[in-house]
Simulated scan of single mutants.
Amino acid sequence: MAGFLTTHVLDTARGCPAEGLEIALYRLDAGERVLLRALVTNDDGRTDEQILPDGEFAVGQYELVFRAGDYLRATGQAGDEPLFLDEVPIRFGMSEASHYHVPLLLSPFGYSTYRGS
């Protein structure tokens, strides 16, 4: 099986997928972050393509940065500045060529993640 990476962002405060949320994927290489791509979630809270497709997959350390603040402002959930959550970074390792799914459950004052399927 080839490895690849996907995500799904759900707005738990509104009870719906988080549409229009910007996501950046970085590879951590010798202590430096290298931007691999930036995508935006669709109306289902997913990206239209794999965040890291099988042809570009490599084991290693990665970071997804979810631009939660921009999304919360756009949906009227931001509250006062500075926001409690602005950018949500999630660092994780991929140690084998398989499907990695890193979802984000988001609200204005909290989030959670896990390795999904």
Rank of each mutant, 00 (worst) to 15 (best):
S95D: 15
A58N: 10
Y100P: 10
L85V: 08
L105M: 11
P17C: 15
L52N: 04
S98L: 14
A18Y: 05
S98C: 14
L39M: 15
L106D: 09
L83N: 06
D54I: 14
C16N: 11
G76R: 10
S112H: 07
V88M: 06
R14M: 12
G69T: 06
A78V: 00
E56V: 05
R67K: 13
I23W: 04
R33H: 04
A58K: 11
A97R: 13
L35F: 07
V102L: 12
P89E: 07
F66D: 03
V65I: 09
A18G: 09
L52C: 03
L64Q: 12
F4I: 00
P103R: 12
A78C: 02
Y71K: 04
R46T: 15
N42E: 00
G20P: 04
E81V: 12
M1V: 09
E81F: 13
A97P: 05
L21I: 01
G110N: 14
G69C: 07
G60D: 00
H8N: 15
D70I: 06
R37N: 08
L25S: 08
G20R: 02
A74H: 06
G45S: 01
V40C: 03
L28G: 00
D11V: 06
R37M: 03
Q61S: 13
A68T: 05
E63H: 03
G116K: 15
D54Y: 15
C16Q: 15
A13C: 14
T12Y: 06
S117D: 11
Y100T: 13
N42V: 01
Y26S: 05
Y114M: 11
F84H: 11
D11K: 10
H8Y: 14
S117R: 15
L28N: 08
F66Q: 05
M1L: 12
P108I: 08
